[in-house]
Amino acid sequence: MKFLRKIFLGDLWDGLKVTFRSQAPKYIYTEQYPAERPAVSERFRGAPRLNINPENGETLCISCDLCAIACPENLIKVGSVRNPETRRKDLVTFTYDLSRCMFCGLCEDACPVDALELTQDFELAGYSRDGAIWDRQMLEEGPHPQKYQ
């Protein structure tokens, strides 16, 4: 039996069976990426976003600087001035250097008011390193990836 198997290339036919079985359309896993964008999971850690209050359009950020302290790469810079009337810090600038970000999610964990959030946007490629440094406006609006048809 073993001899016959060897003569008639039994081991190779076995392998070919697996290959042909996998031709079935239900095994097609290729994603048609630019045409169909994949749905990433709910907890996906992608582009950062600075949330604004939908009611009055003001930022949720309280300039507490905790995200900047938590960041291992030290890439968040929060600029704020103290408002003499409310005796609170008002956010002025917020820069996030996406070129060094490793999407660990520690800034998101540290934020006490859910202002900074890593969203499901994953198309972050750009032509220059400067473009990867996001200012406050960019963080609030989010990226606008080009959609090719």
Binding site: E42, R43, F44, F103, G105
Partner: peptide
């Protein structure tokens, strides 16, 4: 996919 659903990243999971 299970990793991504669980913690939001696929390779460098943290």
């Amino acid at each position: 996919k299970i990793f991504e659903n669980y913690c939001g990243a696929r390779i460098t999971t943290h």
